[in-house]
């Protein structure tokens, strides 16, 4: 019995340090990704990260989705590396099918490679989606099995936008907060539901669930706004509407003070 109790204690303390991920994301089954790992981790500086890790056996690739809240400052070295005048990638944020950034800073893939990584930050909240391909050897070099890049980058964009929304909700309402708590926090901060607001202005709405992009049409005007982004397209003109669009339980929420000026 003593041995059993000791073993139980070991596993309990381990589970407390490595609890389950505090968010859920839906990936269509036909994409072939199977959940392999679900973790929530708090480091010694109280930074929190939740992540889901998936494996796809058909092409031997892996996919990781992280949502995090930082409570310690980023190191000077990290800032220097990311903002290097020659190789910095902080502003490299538009390599996505929608061509719209996510968060306030971050980066997206610069080209087809053996992996793709999208990093999006909103102040101390962050979302990170990484997809790794494996390779075989060809003429003395690794050749990555990235034939599905185009459809994968679309999935990665979709997940990154959803993860950004979750990160913002956690920032506003607390880590692991409920949908209701998130909604209250958004209302307190002046967010309104985007769909009904645009409809009240006479727009019709269509929704692209993969790009997480809503298209609003009225007469000759078309406005495109994407979840997790403070950019949008007014016709073909890229504009900044000043605050992130936050997705919550299938609804888009936005601050509309600047968007009002977009409407003809």
């Amino acid at each position: 019995m003593t041995a059993l109790l000791s073993l139980t204690t070991i596993f309990l303390s381990y589970n407390q340090a490595q609890s389950e991920c505090k968010f859920n994301l839906f990936i269509p089954a036909e994409r072939g990704f199977v959940l392999d790992l679900s973790r929530h981790h708090i480091d010694q500086l109280s930074n929190e990260i939740s992540y889901l890790f998936f494996l796809r056996s058909s092409s031997k690739s892996s996919l990781s989705v992280d949502v995090g809240l930082r409570r310690s400052p980023r190191s000077k070295q990290t800032i220097e590396i990311e903002s290097d005048p020659l190789f910095g990638y902080l502003n490299d944020r538009r390599g996505l099918p929608s061509k719209l950034s996510i968060g306030l800073e971050g980066w997206t893939p610069r080209g087809v490679s053996g992996s793709m990584k999208v990093v999006a930050r909103f102040e101390n909240a962050s979302a990170q989606v990484t997809l790794h391909y494996t390779a075989h050897k060809e003429k003395g070099k690794p050749r990555f099995n990235n034939e599905t890049w185009d459809e994968d980058i679309a999935l990665v964009e979709s997940l990154a936008r959803q993860a950004m929304s979750i990160a913002v909700r956690w920032k506003l309402a607390g880590v692991g907060s409920s949908i209701d708590a998130g909604r209250e926090s958004l209302i307190e901060r002046g967010y309104v539901r985007l769909g009904p607001w645009m409809t009240s202005k006479g727009f019709t709405v269509t929704w692209d669930p993969m790009k997480r992009m809503a298209t609003f049409t009225k007469g000759n005007q078309t406005i495109k706004l994407a979840e997790g982004s403070r950019e949008g397209f007014d016709g073909s003109v890229r504009k900044d509407h000043g605050s992130l669009i936050v997705g919550l339980n299938g609804e888009l929420w936005a601050k509309t003070s600047q968007l009002s000026s977009w409407i003809n």
Binding site: N47, Y51, S64, D66, R70, R74, K117, R121
Partner: peptide, 22 residues
């Protein structure tokens, strides 16, 4: 490719990803 936002190295997911990785 293997750091999280808190500058931690993601050894668990690396080890769960088989084969060649960037």
């Amino acid at each position: 490719n293997w750091f999280d936002e808190s500058n931690s190295f993601k050894l668990s997911t690396l080890l769960r990803t088989s084969g060649w990785v960037t």
